[in-house]
Computed example of a mutant assay.
Amino acid sequence: MLLNTSRLLHLPWLGGGAAALAVVLWALVPLLVTQAGALPPLRLSALALLAGALGTLPMARRRRNPSAAGRSAKEALVYLGVALLIAGAVGASFTAFTLAPAAEASLILYAWPVLFLLASRRLALGRLPATTLAGALLAFSGAALLVAPQALSGGMSGAWSGYLLAAVAALCWALYSLACQVPAWRLGKRMPHLLLIASVLTGIASLALEGTASLPSQETLLVTAALGLGPYGLAMLAWDRAMRDSLAHQVGQLAHAVPVLATLILVVAGVAAPDWRLPVAALLVVAGSVTAARRPTDHPTLRGGMAD
């Protein structure tokens, strides 16, 4: 049995399949959040993260490492810091989807791979290559195409606040991705505990900012469970598996399809109205992400994509 499992984990198509599964599940987030609209966003975040923690617990169980017993302070710091990033990313994005149109907010949110590339290339090279800067400007121009009408109309409420929160969520996901690159932290193995801590943090924030509320309807609870078990449970484990693949730098390019797929799902579901700005902005974000992920000509050994 162990031998068969080992062979299964090393099948050549498994990394790409895991990444594709994660991309599809992440693209469903804006639609699922809008379907659970009766639930306040922070409370929805807490319940979804709790469902993700419970769902990933049996899949991510590992043996304890006795040699790590003396590093409790460092362990606690890792758990709290990464859980804060997850709580900030999920809470901010869910709130953004309630304050701004879901399609526009999701395109801003899913520009996070560009932020990740900017940070990882800066850390790896001590500078930002021209291709990375050009790609970032291209992707951000796509987000600006959506934000500009709100910015020109003035005010910091409503959709404009949602856009800002989507940008905050993108920054949190970029920092979380950087944390995933630290081998000693082994975030995939810690995922159930990280999601559980993030659930507690967002739950506390919900009680403080949203107050108490009655028990959600059965339909809303089912949507919340799907949101937690899928995008914030199975998808995160699948992405962790994809990033440990030998071709992770190629497999990671699939993440650039998330904003286009999310927008397409919202339009097909009737949540977002067809608008010429949406496909143009989506193409700019994807083109910018792909451009930013290109290897610098003066540093050909640097990997592109999400696995830097």
Results as ranks from 00 to 15, higher is better:
Leu3Met: 02
Arg7Asn: 12
Leu8Pro: 00
Trp13Val: 09
Gly15Ala: 12
Gly16Met: 04
Gly17Trp: 02
Ala22Gln: 05
Ala22Trp: 01
Leu31Val: 06
Gln35Trp: 11
Ala38His: 07
Leu39Met: 14
Leu39Lys: 03
Pro40Tyr: 10
Pro40Leu: 06
Ala48Trp: 04
Ala48Gly: 07
Leu57His: 11
Pro66Ile: 04
Glu75Val: 00
Leu80Trp: 12
Ala87Pro: 08
Ala89Gln: 12
Val90Asn: 14
Ala92Val: 05
Phe94Val: 05
Leu109Val: 14
Gly126Ile: 13
Arg127Met: 13
Ala134Pro: 04
Leu138Glu: 02
Ala139Pro: 09
Leu146Trp: 11
Val147Thr: 13
Ala148Val: 14
Leu152Glu: 11
Ser153Leu: 08
Met156Leu: 15
Trp160Asn: 12
Gly162Pro: 09
Cys172Ser: 07
Trp173Met: 11
Cys180Trp: 00
Pro183Ala: 07
Trp185Gln: 09
Arg186Met: 06
Arg190Phe: 07
Met191Trp: 12
Leu196Phe: 15
Ala198Trp: 02
Val200Arg: 04
Thr202Trp: 03
Thr202Ala: 11
Leu209Thr: 14
Leu215Asp: 01
Gly233Ile: 02
Met236Pro: 00
Met236Gln: 13
Ala238Lys: 05
Trp239Thr: 02
Met243Gly: 02
Met243Val: 00
Asp245Met: 02
Gln250Val: 04
Ala255Lys: 00
His256Ser: 09
Ala269Lys: 03
Ala269Thr: 01
Ala273Ile: 05
Trp276Glu: 09
Trp276Tyr: 11
Arg277Cys: 10
Val280Glu: 06
Leu284Val: 01
Val285Tyr: 09
Asp298Gln: 10
Pro300Glu: 09
Leu302Ala: 08
Leu302Thr: 06
Arg303Asn: 04
Asp308Ala: 10
